[in-house]
Amino acid sequence: MSAPLLVAEGLFKRYGSIAACRDISFELDEGEALAIVGESGSGKTTLLHLLGGLLAPDSGAVFYRGRDGASRNLFEMSEAERRALMRADWGFVHQDAARGLRMNVSAGGNIGERLMALGDRHYGRIRGAASQWLERVEIPLARLDDSPQTYSGGMRQRLQIARNLVTAPRLVFMDEPTGGLDVSVQARLLDLIRGLIAEMGLAVVLVTHDLGVARLLSNRILVMKQGEVVESGLTDRVLDDPQAPYTQLLVSSVLAA
């Protein structure tokens, strides 16, 4: 078994007197999908931002094993290294697609940007890659030159996914990827995400308040409450045989349609 891809060690993050994250530690392997669930205020989004290097912790570390095999602490890297990592190795899918896209640039330009950032200088090739990805996320090719202003919410989200995956990242962070979308749109999007994770062998850290989404997309789960991990383990086990009182409460509170 190879070394873990991402290791969080003793992460602490405080906002004034509120501890958003308290002593969080876990490991993530290549190709593993981890869901972080909890209610509002649980600290799950803060944790996601810490893991993604978007926020610095008050103490603790996040180690990432690069393509060269060496593990480095995210917060001891230079900003240049961190940004390069985010461009080449990582993806970040925001809940609000507009945050993760350039709304005044065409879909093709959005998808091609990472390729251009990594030095690709052939228009035809960039456009070809963008076209392929547009089809892969099931957006009609005719929309390649349209700006995402003209896209629906579900299409924007799929475009955001394509933009992130075009460089075949090893690790993708997702923040409520289907939040705010119509239910009918969610189902198809979830299947797309699930398929891509399996095909590309992506490691995923997914924050969601929706236990159904967690069950569908992840194999492991962390349940957070007020900044702490109250339970963790195999997703179906934690959801079907919850041990911690809070997890039992969460699971029993979900309404069935």
């Binding site: 065409s106 093709g108 251009m116 990594l118 228009y123 456009r127 030159d145």
Partner: peptide, 12 residues
């Protein structure tokens, strides 16, 4: 990279 995005948009 974003500079080339602008040129890409022009060509598109």
């Amino acid at each position: 990279g974003v500079m080339h995005v602008k040129l890409y948009e022009d060509i598109a």
